[in-house]
C-alpha cells in the first residue's frame, strides 16, 4: 500500500521547479500521515470488535442458561434435561489448589534465587532464559509429558496428575514476576536489614519478599488465572469425570474440560451448559485479573503512596 500511494501522488520528476516539488511532496506526506493514522485506528477498532463480540455473545448465551441447578447439580445423563456443573467447578478448584500448592512455592523460591542470590551470575541468566522459553512450550506438551510420567506409572488418570501439569505451567510465570518485583525493592532497604545483623535468609523473607508482596501476589494471581482456563494439559491427566470425586488419585472433572466436552457434543442442552460454564469460567478469571490490575496500579511499596 505504501508504494501505491507513493506512485499516485508523486508525479514529480527531476525537471520540476523545487517549489512545486516540495508542495506536492508535502501533500503526499500529510496524506500518508493521515492514511497511517487512520489505519492504526481502524486496526484498534478491529481488535476490540471480536473482544466485544465474544464477551457480548458469551454474556447473552451464558446468562440465559445459568440457573441454580448449574451450581448444585452434576451433569445429567444424555437425553435428560437439566443438570449442572457443580462437580466440575469443585474439581477445577481442587486441581488448581493442588497446582498452586506445588507451583507457587517453587516459583517464588526460584524468583528469590534470581533476584537475591543470582545477580550477575551466568547460572541465573540461564534460569531466566529457560523460564521464558518454558513459558512458550505448548500446554498440550505438558499434558502428554505428565501423562507419560505420572499417569502411566499410576496406571490411571488422576486429579494429582492434573495438578502437576498445571503447576509446571505456573512455575515460569511466577518465577519471572517474583524476580521482577524483588528487583524493584530498593537495595538500601536490604542493606538496612543486613546492617542490623539480620541474616540473609531472614532479610530475603521478612524484608525483600514482604516489601514486594503485593506485586508477587499479583503475579501469582495472573498465573493462577492463566492456568484456570487451560484444557489441553488436563485432557490426559485429570481426564474429567461425570460424577463427584474428592480423591486425588482418581479422575476428576474440571470446568474447561467439561466445556470442551459439551461444546463438541451434538446436543443443544449440552451446548447451553457449555455457554453457562464458559461464562462462569470467564467471570472467575476476569474478576481475578481486574482485582490484580487495581492492586498493581497502586504500586508495590505500600508506604510510598
Amino acid at each position: 500500500m505504501t508504494s501505491a500511494s507513493v506512485t499516485n501522488t508523486t508525479p514529480a520528476t527531476p525537471q520540476r521547479p523545487p517549489l512545486r516539488h516540495s508542495r506536492s511532496n508535502g501533500m503526499r506526506r500529510s496524506f500518508m500521515d493521515a492514511f497511517v493514522v487512520g489505519l492504526a485506528t481502524l486496526a484498534t477498532l478491529l481488535v476490540i470488535a471480536p473482544l466485544v463480540a465474544i464477551l457480548g455473545y458469551l454474556l447473552y448465551k451464558g446468562a440465559s442458561s445459568l440457573n441454580l441447578a448449574f451450581f448444585t447439580h452434576i451433569p445429567a445423563p444424555v437425553g435428560e434435561p437439566g443438570g449442572g456443573m457443580a462437580n466440575s467447578i469443585v474439581g477445577s478448584g481442587i486441581v488448581l489448589l493442588l497446582a498452586s500448592f506445588m507451583g507457587v512455592p517453587v516459583g517464588i523460591a526460584a524468583g528469590v534465587y534470581l533476584a537475591e542470590f543470582g545477580r550477575g551470575k551466568a547460572l541465573a541468566a540461564a534460569v531466566r532464559f529457560t523460564a521464558d522459553v518454558l513459558n512458550g512450550v505448548p500446554s498440550i506438551v505438558m499434558g502428554i509429558s505428565v501423562y507419560a510420567l505420572v499417569v502411566l506409572k499410576q496406571k490411571h488418570f488422576s486429579a494429582l496428575a492434573g495438578g502437576i501439569a498445571l503447576a509446571i505451567m505456573m512455575v515460569p510465570t511466577i518465577t519471572r514476576t517474583t524476580e521482577e518485583m524483588l528487583l524493584i525493592v530498593p537495595n538500601a532497604v536490604r542493606e538496612a536489614a543486613l546492617g542490623l545483623g539480620v541474616p540473609k535468609w531472614r532479610t530475603a523473607l521478612s524484608i525483600s519478599l514482604r516489601t514486594a508482596s503485593p506485586g508477587i501476589i499479583t503475579g501469582c494471581m495472573l498465573a493462577f488465572a492463566r492456568v484456570a482456563g487451560e484444557t489441553a494439559p488436563l485432557l490426559f491427566t485429570a481426564f474429567g469425570n461425570q460424577f463427584w470425586n474428592f480423591h486425588l488419585n482418581e479422575p476428576i472433572a474440571a470446568l474447561p474440560l467439561q466445556i470442551f466436552i459439551y461444546a463438541i457434543s451434538p446436543y443443544d442442552e449440552w451446548h447451553r451448559l457449555a455457554w453457562a460454564g464458559a461464562l462462569v469460567l470467564i467471570l472467575l478469571i476476569m474478576v481475578s485479573v481486574t482485582l490484580v490490575r487495581i492492586f498493581a496500579g497502586r504500586g508495590i511499596l505500600k508506604g510510598n503512596s
Partner: peptide
C-alpha cells in the same frame, strides 16, 4: 486493558465461540 483481557480468555472459550458464531 481490553487487549489484555483478550489474552485472558481461555482457549476453550475461543473455541466455543468459534464453533457457534
Amino acid at each position: 486493558f481490553l487487549t489484555e483481557l483478550l489474552a485472558a480468555i481461555p482457549s476453550v472459550v475461543y473455541g466455543l465461540w468459534a464453533v457457534f458464531v
